[in-house]
Simulated scan of single mutants.
Amino acid sequence: MRAIQGALLIASIFQMVIGFFGFWRIFSRLLSPLAIVPPVTLTGLGLYAHGFPQLAKCIEIGLPALFLVVFLSQFLPHMMKSKGIILARFAVLFSVAVVWVFAEILTVAGAYDNKPPNTQISCRTDRSGLLSAAPWIRVPYPFQWGGPTFDAGDIFAMMAACFVAVVESSGTIIAASRYGSATPIPPSVLSRGIGWLGIGTLLAAGFGTGSGSTASVENAGLLGLTRVGSRRVVQISAGFMLFFSVLGKFGALLASIPLPIMAALYCVLFAYVCSAGLGFLQFCNLNSFRTKFILGFSLFMGLSVPQYFNEYLLISGRGPVHTGATWFNNIMQVIFSSPATVSIMVAFFLDLTHSLRHSSTRRDSGRHWWRKFRNFDQDVRSEEFYSLPYNLNRFFPSF
């Protein structure tokens, strides 16, 4: 933990530098709608292993949760009109509550008493004595595991992980802006967000969480599911999270929710993020074979390359890159195990080099749609969306 803390502390500086000093702004200014489609799509699609495979570990509670959240959010609003819309806004809460009670009934009734250990871990709501062992109040404090230690190899590997977090967070932020009815994000705003991501990683390192910070893919999908694009909701939710983080019993209660229930939600939320990426195709010329090649090749390589790296690691116990420098091996393994990162590297390179001198290249990639949003002050709507967070309270149109 002390080594992880030290590596995260240095890696957070890397994120803050590329964010606040504008390096990510320079990169994002060169992005087009075509280059954005693969990373945003694979930010959601690349997490498919956390969906139905996890749900199927306890199919009797995972499948009802999936059916319930889809029915409440997609079908009921059209059947009940105004009243159904209210239920759709709280589809996640209602689905989790109902199926959680159902799982508790199965646990108390002894349905899993004689089941294999893996089934009991996935299905039971009283596993591991989480609620009884958790303290009522626990206030986290900096460096609770001791003073951080610093190792160059760990730092470089963590910087690679932070780079992957930057790419995936950018995809999540773009998807969230799309579902929040915002204009295309000006590169300066996106770069500033990455800088604040580094501050989050710095705080995570200081308090010893064991992991860095990244934009929540689930929250971006939740924007599409609930169709509420208000920043005030996020601010209030953050306040609740800060308050309840010191209540150990409350955290243990949430941790007792069976994972298949959450996996059922992921099936819907990650799908929304995936579809947000595909939505950017409306800005591209899909009749162009250049567009088709870049799109198909980057999506395919974004799924195929991480699959190869992960399978190689699973079978051989090490990655396919195995030089004498362990830190370099770890960097390659981390970067090329991320679908979004691989896809954005392929799409970005091809979009800037393929048929560069052709007259229709810029229009085929959709760059002309985003030209006026490259600078913050070229469109008054940018100031409305990105400078006045407390006055922004926009909702999607009703069903």
Rank of each mutant, 00 (worst) to 15 (best):
M1Q: 10
Q5L: 06
G6R: 09
A11Y: 05
F14E: 07
M16A: 09
F20G: 11
F21K: 12
F27W: 07
P33D: 08
A35K: 03
A35W: 03
T43D: 07
G46L: 05
H50M: 05
F52S: 14
K57A: 08
A65C: 13
F67S: 09
L68H: 02
F71S: 07
P77G: 06
M79G: 01
G84D: 10
I85R: 12
F94S: 03
F94E: 07
F94I: 15
V96G: 05
V101N: 01
A103G: 04
A111L: 06
S122Q: 10
C123L: 05
D126V: 09
R127M: 10
S132Q: 12
A134L: 08
A134R: 04
P135L: 05
I137K: 07
P148V: 14
P148L: 11
D151V: 12
A160T: 09
A160Q: 07
A161P: 02
V167Q: 04
T172Y: 03
A175I: 08
A176K: 06
A176H: 02
S181A: 07
S188T: 14
R192V: 05
G200L: 02
G206P: 04
T209R: 09
A215M: 14
G224T: 11
L225K: 09
G229V: 06
S237R: 02
G239S: 10
F240H: 08
G251K: 13
G251V: 07
A252Q: 12
L254H: 00
P258T: 12
M262I: 15
Y272A: 15
V273H: 01
F280E: 10
F280I: 01
F280N: 13
S288M: 02
S298I: 09
F300P: 00
F300L: 15
G302E: 06
F309S: 00
E311T: 14
Y312C: 12
L313V: 07
G317P: 05
G317V: 06
S338K: 10
T341S: 14
S343T: 04
S343G: 02
M345Q: 03
F348V: 13
F349V: 15
R357V: 03
S359V: 04
H368K: 04
W369C: 07
D379N: 11
E383D: 03
E384C: 08
E384G: 01
F385S: 07
L388R: 15
N391F: 12
L392H: 08
L392R: 14
N393P: 01
N393F: 05
